[in-house]
Simulated assay, not measured.
Amino acid sequence: MRILYFYPENPLSFSQGNNSRALSLLHYFKNRNIDIDLVGEESKEFGQDSINELKSEDLIKHGYLLKKEKKSSNIVKYYLNYSFPKKFNSKFKDFDRTKFGYKEQFSKILKDNEYDIIIISYVYWSPLLDNVTKGTKTKWIVDTHDFLTSQFQDHKKFALDRYFKREINLMQKFDDVWVISNEEKYLFSQFVKSPVSLVTHGLPNNIETSSKTEKTIDLVYVASENFHNIKSANWFFKEAYPFLSSDIKITVVGKIGNHIPKFENVENLVFVKDLDEVYKKSKIAICPMLSGTGVKIKVIESLSHGIPVVCTERGVDGLLNKTNNGCLTTNDPSLFSDYINKLLNDAEFYKQNHLEVKKFFEDNFDIKKTYNVLDGIFKAN
C-alpha cells in the first residue's frame, strides 16, 4: 500500500496542535510499516532540512514541497490557470489555499507515482485535486481537522449558507471524511454522502512516567500566535492572572509568548525541542480559549501526562464528556484563578482531578484506540 499524505505545515514544529496531530499520524504509518510520501508547502519553517529529518527518522519515504511560481515564469499560464479562475471564484477564495503553480506541481507528483490512497489535510486544500483524474482503485480521504465555516464567520463577506454549502460540496469528492470530534461527525454526516470517520488525536500514555518526575512548573500554557490564542492570552493575563499569587511559577510555550507582557514569574519558551519534557514537569495546564472550534490538541496532550486542565468552555470543545474529564471549566476569570489556586494548595482536590484525567484519557484518547480505528480504515494488521 502506498499513500500520499498532504499536510501543508512542518509536522516537526511543536508550536501548534495540528502539527502534533500530523506527526502522530506519521508515527502510525511507521508503526504499521506503510510507505508514506509527504507533500507540504515550502516556507521558512518547512524546508528541505525538515524533509530530510523526516526521512532520516523513517517517518516518510519521499518528501515534496510545493513552491509558489513567479508570475513572470509564464504569464499566459498565470492568467489562464490561476488569476482568472481565482477572480471568477472570488466569493469562495477562503476555501482555496493553493498558490500559482501548486496544482500543476501536485499533479506531476501523482503522474510520476502510483498511490492507493491520497490524504488531503483541510478542506480548503482540496482544490489540489482539481486537475487530477481519480483512478478507479484510488481512494481519496480528507482529514478536516476543523469545522472551517465557523472559522470564517468574522470575514466581511461571510454568509453562513454559502460558506457551509461550499464546505460540504468540497467534501463530497472524497471517499472518506475524517473528523476529530463527535460534534463534527454528527454535523457533517447529516450532509455528506461518504462515510464520516471519527479519528481522534491519540497519544501515548505518559501518565505513569510523568508522575515520577519532579514538578518544577506550577502552571503551563502552550499556544501558537493565531488570532484566537492572542485574544485568549490577553483575557487570561488581564482578567485572571491578577488573582494569582506572584509565587506561582508559570511557563508559556510557543509563539504566543511574543504577545504576553513580561512578568517576573512567567518564563517564555518560544520553541522547545521536546514538549513532553515540559509537560512532565508541570502540575497544571491552562486553556483559556474564548473562540475557535474543534478539539484543542494541547488539552489532550496535557491529559496524556495526567495534568488537570483549567479552561474556559471552548477548551472542552470536541471532548466526548464535558464533565468528569479532568478539566475544570469556567468563563469567569475569578473562578478560573480559584481553580488554579485550589489545585495547587489542596492535595486531595488535585488527586481527585488527576484520577479523572487518567480515566478519561485512557477511555478516549489512548493511542491504542486511535490505532484500532485507523487499522479499520487501512485494513492494516
Rank of each mutant, 00 (worst) to 15 (best):
L160F: 13
L198M: 13
K108L: 08
K185H: 12
F147G: 00
E184P: 06
D218P: 02
T213H: 13
Q153L: 02
D96H: 07
P204S: 10
R162N: 03
E225W: 02
K215F: 01
Y115I: 07
I118C: 05
E183K: 03
K134T: 11
F95L: 09
V199T: 09
Y115C: 06
V222T: 12
D154R: 11
V196N: 12
F100T: 03
F174I: 01
Q151N: 11
R162G: 00
V192H: 09
L187G: 05
I109W: 09
N226M: 03
K185I: 08
F158W: 01
I118Q: 03
T200W: 13
D130R: 13
I109D: 11
Y122T: 12
I207Q: 01
I207K: 01
E214W: 04
M171A: 00
V177A: 06
D146G: 06
K212S: 05
F152N: 04
S107L: 15
K134I: 14
E114R: 11
H201R: 14
N226K: 01
V220K: 01
S150V: 04
R162W: 00
Y221S: 01
K103S: 07
D143Q: 10
G101E: 00
F191L: 14
S197T: 15
S194L: 12
R162L: 04
Y122K: 14
T98E: 03
K111R: 05
H145E: 12
